[in-house]
Computed example of a mutant assay.
Amino acid sequence: MVEEVALQPSRNPVAAIDCGTNTIKLLIGALPDVAVREMRIVRLGQDLDRTGRIADEALERSFAAIDEYAELVRAHDVPPERVRFVATSATRDAANAEAFVSGVRARLGVEPEVVTGAEEAALAFGGAVRNLRVPAPAPVLVVDIGGGSTELILGRSDPEQAHSMDIGSVRLHERHLASDPPTPDQVAACLADVDAHLDACPVDVAAAASVVGVAGTVTTVAAAVLDLPAYDREVLDQSVLAVADVHAAVDRLVAMTHDERRTLGFMHPGRADVIDAGALILSAVLRRARVETLVVSESDILDGIAWSIGR
């Protein structure tokens, strides 16, 4: 089992916000108890790979979600010093990131942190391994597939190797998978892009004794493996899936049209179009890992951010 770091639970509530390329998530709680866990798909990274800027409509969607979150933070009496807003891939890459940062500052009264890929990886690893309740021999590879980047982190109780690759579900879908469903040539181009990034990645994926997948791409693929009638966090968390079944589910999802994916009871409508690229990233990573199972964790970077405040 992965060794847990012994930290005292916080007596006061914290508010953690994880702002990625596709989603903004909020966690409020007096750790280890969680009072609020919310997610909004806002597609902050819309067209970012092509334009280098956050689109005006993406800013509007994101600010609307942050306004909601600000109300929840105030309702739970979380003081500003116990609120941490972490922005990741899209904000790192955007030429107009300051427009987003200043908008967050005005709404929440806190300074958003645009973290590096290495910081993002460490937070994701901490969130994933702390709550593992199933056997996961070390070293553990944590795979965090976001909308704009994918973090690979290998370690035991702490990260030992970590790398953030500029490939994610939104970025690669917009770059390669224009048809609905994508053509075989488009899929091949997407996989070639993923493999090129993996070839350059310093994390030794093959050294992992176990693989833990976190975040929406992984949990959605897991729901497809389990053929869930609706998304069920309790069922998905700590599930252990055969890698062969994961590959088969990825193939099925990639072959579907957007409309067909939206009919799946577990599929969030804001993820239906880009799940193909994210699933292909997961499949490519698992092909390089020498493991037969994938552990799925609902605890991810958001939990890591929360615990970092509660120290």
Rank of each mutant, 00 (worst) to 15 (best):
Gly265Pro: 11
Met267Gln: 09
Asp259Glu: 15
His268Pro: 02
Arg290His: 12
Leu282Pro: 00
Ile275Lys: 03
Arg288Ser: 05
Ala289Ser: 12
Asp276His: 10
Val291Ala: 04
Thr293Tyr: 05
Gly278Phe: 13
His268Leu: 03
Glu292Leu: 10
His258Ser: 14
Ala279Pro: 01
Ala277Cys: 13
Glu260Ala: 15
Thr293His: 14
Gly265Ile: 13
Gly278Asp: 08
Gly278Arg: 06
Asp273Phe: 03
Arg271His: 13
Glu292Gly: 15
Arg262Phe: 00
His268Thr: 08
Arg262Glu: 05
Ala277Glu: 06
His268Met: 00
Gly265Thr: 14
Ile275Gly: 04
Ile275Asp: 03
Arg290Gln: 15
Thr263Met: 12
Ala284Ser: 14
Met267Asn: 05
Leu282Ser: 04
Thr263Ser: 15
Arg262Asn: 08
Met267Ile: 02
Gly270Thr: 07
Ala289Cys: 10
Asp273Asn: 07
Arg288Met: 08
Leu264Glu: 01
Ala277Phe: 06
Leu264Ala: 09
Arg287Tyr: 12
Arg271Leu: 12
Ala272Tyr: 06
Thr293Trp: 01
Ile281Trp: 03
Arg290Trp: 02
Arg262Lys: 15
Arg290Ala: 14
Val285Cys: 03
Thr293Ala: 12
Ile275Gln: 03
Val274Phe: 03
Glu292Ile: 02
Glu292Gln: 12
Ala279His: 07
Met267Phe: 14
Glu260Tyr: 10
Ala289His: 05
Leu280His: 02
His258Val: 15
Ala284Thr: 07
Val274His: 04
Gly278Ser: 08
Leu286Met: 12
Val285Ile: 13
Glu260Asp: 15
His268Cys: 06
Glu292Asp: 15
Arg262Tyr: 00
Val285Asn: 13
Met267Arg: 08
Glu260Ile: 11
His258Cys: 13
Ser283Met: 05
Arg287Leu: 12
Ile281Asn: 03
Arg287Phe: 07
Ala279Asn: 11
Pro269Phe: 07
Arg288Asn: 04
Ser283His: 07
Arg261Pro: 06
Phe266Pro: 02
Arg262His: 00
Thr263Pro: 01
Arg271Glu: 05
Arg271Ser: 03
Ile281Asp: 01
Ile275Val: 14
Ala279Cys: 14
Gly265Met: 12
Arg271Val: 00
Val285Arg: 09
Thr263Leu: 11
Phe266Lys: 06
Val285Leu: 09
Gly270Glu: 00
His258Phe: 13
Val274Leu: 10
Arg271Asn: 04
Arg262Ser: 04
Arg261Asp: 09
Arg290Lys: 13
Ala272Leu: 04
Thr293Phe: 06
Ala284Leu: 06
Leu280Glu: 03
His258Gly: 15
Ala279Glu: 13
Val285Ala: 05
Asp276Leu: 08
Leu280Asp: 01
Val291Ser: 03
Val274Gly: 01
Met267Gly: 11
